[in-house]
Computed example of a mutant assay.
Amino acid sequence: MDLLNLFQNHLKLSINDMTKLSGIPKTSVHRMIGSLEQMGFLCKDEDGQYTLGLLFLQFGNLVAERLDIRNISLQVMEKLRDDIGEAVHLVLRDGEETMYIEKLDTHHPVRLFTKIGKKAPLYAGASSRTILAFMPQEEREAYLESVVLKPIGCGTMTDKDKLRASLERSQRDGYSFSRSELENYTAELSVPIFDHTGQAIAALSIAGLEVRFDEEHMPELITKIKAAAHEISSKLGYNGHSY
């Protein structure tokens, strides 16, 4: 594993490179490389340089196919819900909309009515805007050029300049916040979830009555939801810096 881990930061390595970088005696490196090459974990090119073998691609595809983001996220979402006492949502993109694929209700007697399968346009609500903000730039701009912004709640953004400014803030700050955009008198705070390639593939959000998201509590909520999203992203193979 010490030898294989070297290839996380190096595309190709010679035996001398691996000996120097690992600190393992050259005779041991030579012996281990022979075994790794025989099993298909390493491949030697015509210049005597080693690269990771195609076996890693096969394993990688299997892992990717078997990952279930709902199962991976659920335990983290439960901890977050119990900690902050607000509803927690997991949201994915579905074309030009987003869809709630998991929801944990708050224990408050007064709560939001949202359900798994609920959809929202990409421009409305914190979760949707998080996904829109972290989409590839060309794809995001093509959407913004073509979409017609229609009001849903009393706080829905219907001005494209304001929407673009909000998306820039989301990219800069690492979170999105909305008030009364999908449902009046409610608020939502959302952050992106990244996969092993660094691509934002989902949004994690907390939502509740607007009065419970006051300025005094926002810094703490932002810190906690970012930590939860980073934990989920790490489970998906993301190795970037904390949010």
Score class of each variant (00 low, 15 high):
Met1His: 06
Leu6Phe: 08
Leu6Asn: 00
Leu13Phe: 03
Ser14Arg: 09
Ser22Thr: 04
Gly23Asn: 01
Thr27Lys: 11
Val29Gln: 01
Met32Pro: 01
Met39Glu: 12
Gly40Met: 07
Lys44Cys: 04
Gln49Tyr: 07
Tyr50Ile: 03
Tyr50Arg: 01
Leu52Ala: 06
Leu54Ala: 14
Leu54Tyr: 11
Leu55Asn: 13
Gln58Leu: 11
Gln58Met: 14
Arg66Glu: 15
Arg66Ala: 13
Asp68Arg: 14
Ser73Met: 15
Leu74Arg: 15
Leu74Ser: 14
Gln75Met: 10
Gln75Arg: 11
Val76Tyr: 11
Arg81Phe: 12
Ile84Ser: 03
Gly85Trp: 08
Gly85His: 06
Leu92Gly: 05
Arg93Thr: 10
Thr98Ala: 03
Met99Leu: 15
Tyr100Leu: 13
Ile101Met: 08
Lys103Thr: 15
Asp105Leu: 05
Thr106Pro: 10
Val110Met: 04
Arg111Met: 01
Arg111Asn: 07
Lys115Thr: 11
Ile116Tyr: 11
Ile116Glu: 12
Gly117Cys: 04
Lys118Trp: 00
Lys119Asn: 02
Lys119Thr: 15
Ala120Trp: 11
Ala120Met: 11
Pro121Cys: 11
Leu122Gln: 05
Tyr123Ala: 05
Gly125Ser: 07
Arg129Lys: 15
Thr130Ile: 06
Glu139His: 13
Arg140Asp: 13
Arg140Asn: 06
Ser146Trp: 02
Val148Gly: 02
Pro151Ser: 09
Pro151Glu: 00
Ile152Phe: 05
Ile152Lys: 03
Cys154Asn: 04
Thr156Ala: 02
Asp161Gln: 09
Lys162Trp: 00
Arg164Trp: 04
Arg164Ser: 07
Ser170Arg: 02
Ser170Phe: 10
Arg172Ile: 08
Asp173Tyr: 05
Gly174Pro: 14
Tyr175Cys: 00
Tyr175Leu: 03
Glu183Pro: 07
Asn184Ser: 08
Ala187Cys: 10
Phe194Gly: 03
Phe194Asn: 01
Thr197Ser: 08
Gly198Phe: 14
Ile201Leu: 10
Leu204Met: 06
Leu209Thr: 03
Phe213Ile: 00
His217Ile: 02
Pro219Lys: 08
Glu220Ser: 13
Ile222Asp: 03
Ile222Met: 04
Lys224Arg: 03
Lys224Pro: 02
Ile225His: 10
Ile225Cys: 10
Lys226Asn: 03
Ala228Leu: 02
His230Ile: 10
Glu231Pro: 02
Glu231Thr: 13
Ile232Val: 00
Ser234His: 08
Leu236Lys: 08
Gly237Pro: 07
His241Thr: 14
